Computed example of a mutant assay.
Amino acid sequence: MSLVEFRQWVKYRNRRGSLNVGMRVERGVALLATLYANAHTKDGGYKIYDFMPHDAEKAVTLEQAMESWA
């Protein structure tokens, strides 16, 4: 694989996510579960990561944290 092709794949993964079919299916199902749970509960507030046991929410950067405090 050439360096150019590798960079194209990295760009694709950054934009579209994992190439793992199982993770893609899990994300799709989690999205549907999130929509359903938020629509049918009083409080709502569920995130997609609440329904994805094999993925975790990305850590907040210092800049994002400082922005949320303001």
Rank of each mutant, 00 (worst) to 15 (best):
L19W: 01
L31N: 12
M1L: 15
K58A: 15
Y12E: 02
Y49P: 03
V10T: 02
A39C: 11
G17V: 10
L19M: 05
A70L: 15
A30M: 00
A70R: 13
V25G: 01
T61V: 05
N38I: 01
D43P: 07
G28L: 09
Y46S: 03
A59R: 07
R15P: 00
E63N: 05
L62W: 09
A65F: 10
E67L: 08
T34R: 10
M23T: 01
S18M: 06
K42P: 05
G28K: 12
R27F: 07
E57Y: 07
Y36E: 03
A65V: 01
R7K: 14
N38S: 02
A33E: 14
R15K: 14
L19Y: 07
E63K: 14
A30Q: 06
N38E: 06
K58S: 12
M66Y: 03
K42Y: 11
R7S: 06
A65I: 05
T41R: 13
L3A: 14
G44P: 08
A65E: 11
Q8I: 10
D55V: 08
R27G: 00
Y46V: 05
N38W: 00
L32S: 13
R15F: 03
G17T: 15
K11M: 09
S18R: 13
G28D: 07
F51V: 08
E57R: 14
M23W: 04
Y49M: 01
V10R: 12
E26H: 04
L35F: 15
W69S: 09
Y36S: 09
A70T: 07
L3F: 03
S2E: 08
K58T: 07
E26C: 09
V29R: 04
G45P: 00
M52S: 04
V4Y: 09
G45I: 08
T41M: 12
F51W: 10
S68E: 12
F6I: 13
S18Y: 12
N38T: 08
G44Y: 04
Q8T: 06
W69V: 08
V21K: 15
A65G: 01
N14C: 13
A33H: 02
N20C: 12
H54W: 05
G28W: 03
T34L: 00
A70S: 09
P53I: 01
Y49R: 02
R16P: 00
N14G: 11
L35T: 10
D50T: 01
E57G: 11
L3C: 02
G28F: 02
G45L: 11
H40W: 13
M66D: 11
Y12P: 01
G22A: 02
E5M: 10
V60S: 13
V4E: 09
D43I: 13
K47G: 05
E67G: 06
D55M: 08
V29S: 05
M66S: 09
L3P: 01
A37M: 05
E63R: 13
M1N: 13
F51L: 06
L19T: 03
F6G: 00
D43K: 15
W9A: 09
L3R: 11
L62A: 10
R13H: 11
A59Y: 04
A59H: 04
T41S: 15
Y46G: 05
K47F: 04
A65T: 02
E26D: 13
F6P: 00
D55F: 05
A39M: 08
A59L: 04
M23E: 14
M52V: 02
M23S: 10
K42L: 08
K58V: 10
W69A: 05
S18N: 04
Y36L: 11
D55A: 11
T61C: 05
L3Q: 12
N38H: 11
Q64V: 02
